[in-house]
């Protein structure tokens, strides 16, 4: 046995011992979805959970952060048609207990591929079933838009984290999303928006934080401040906590992860 490299810790595993699927999603782009997925997944693994990230965005930002080539053999078609099992395309990251399914440029056509299937909106859920017993958490880093891929994400996820910039347009988009999900009746899905890229110098941001919009599950109380250290992730190509462990932003992600965990343990909280 060798420290860390071969040992999986499972302290924070969910009570029912089934894999929790957390989607980081927003219709809008550039709101901090990838940063959330990467940093929260890292914290989850660091805490002892066996964690998988699926980079569903053809831009491949998560894959880039983990220094893994955004390439999946057989592309989206191969995966969705089950010519390749998920296990074959999983890559270990440089961090213990943290694996990644890389992005692939062919994901841009995932909608078209999905459309060819009967029960096209549950295809993703079916695909992840075989890895249920291998991981405690699966983070889906989703592309921005609302499409058949998104519907697959809504069907597969237990929790949808919605990073939301405290501006009028972002809130409007959030309501669009909530209305859509209400209409489709995703009862299993806990939609948890939180404020992202918060700049407390701005009156509008402060106002939103003080009086967040009303949603069914409410906003998470932890918010993520705007920070140049997040931008450094692109340079360092690593999760925040590895190079800015004591920063305010790393703290913010830690408290978001703690709050998310307690919400998952007590969904009614």
């Amino acid at each position: 046995m060798k420290p860390d490299s071969e040992v999986y810790l499972t302290r924070a595993r969910s009570e029912d011992n089934t894999m929790k699927v957390i989607a980081c999603y927003n219709i809008k782009g550039g709101v901090g979805k990838t940063a959330s997925a990467v940093n929260l997944a890292y914290l989850s693994a660091r805490e002892g959970n066996s964690t998988l990230v699926w980079d569903l965005d053809p831009q491949g930002a998560s894959s880039f952060y983990f220094r893994i080539k955004p390439k999946v053999k057989g592309g989206a078609q191969g995966l969705l048609r089950r010519k390749r099992v998920l296990d074959d395309v999983i890559k270990a990251t440089d961090y213990d207990r943290l694996d990644l399914i890389p992005a692939d440029f062919s994901y841009r056509n995932m909608d078209l591929t999905l459309e060819r299937f009967r029960k096209s909106s549950t295809r993703l859920r079916k695909l992840i079933e075989p890895v249920q017993s291998d991981y405690d958490y699966l983070f889906l880093d989703c592309p921005p838009n609302i499409s058949l891929v998104s519907e697959n994400v809504f069907e597969a996820a237990d929790v949808m984290l919605v990073p939301t910039i405290p501006t009028t347009l972002s809130i409007r988009t959030l309501y669009q999303l909530l209305r859509f999900c209400d209409k489709r009746k995703y009862k299993h899905l806990d939609i948890l928006p939180f404020f992202s890229m918060v700049d407390r110098r701005k009156i509008l941001h402060r106002g939103m934080l003080e009086d967040p919009p009303r949603t069914r599950s409410g906003f998470l109380t932890s918010d993520i401040p705007y920070s140049s250290e997040v931008e450094q992730m692109g340079v360092k190509r690593a999760p925040l906590a590895t190079y800015a462990h004591n920063s305010r932003i790393a703290d913010a992600y830690r408290s978001l992860w703690r709050e998310l965990n307690s919400r998952m343990d007590h969904p009614s909280a």
Binding site: M1, P3, E6, V7, Y8, L9, T10, R11, G48, S50
Partner: peptide, 19 residues
């Protein structure tokens, strides 16, 4: 960085451990 883990003999693999 100490941890306690239940290993499978032979391959040292495990999914159950705590710090």
């Amino acid at each position: 960085d100490s941890q306690l883990c239940l290993l499978n003999t032979g391959d040292d693999s495990t999914r159950t451990a705590i710090r």
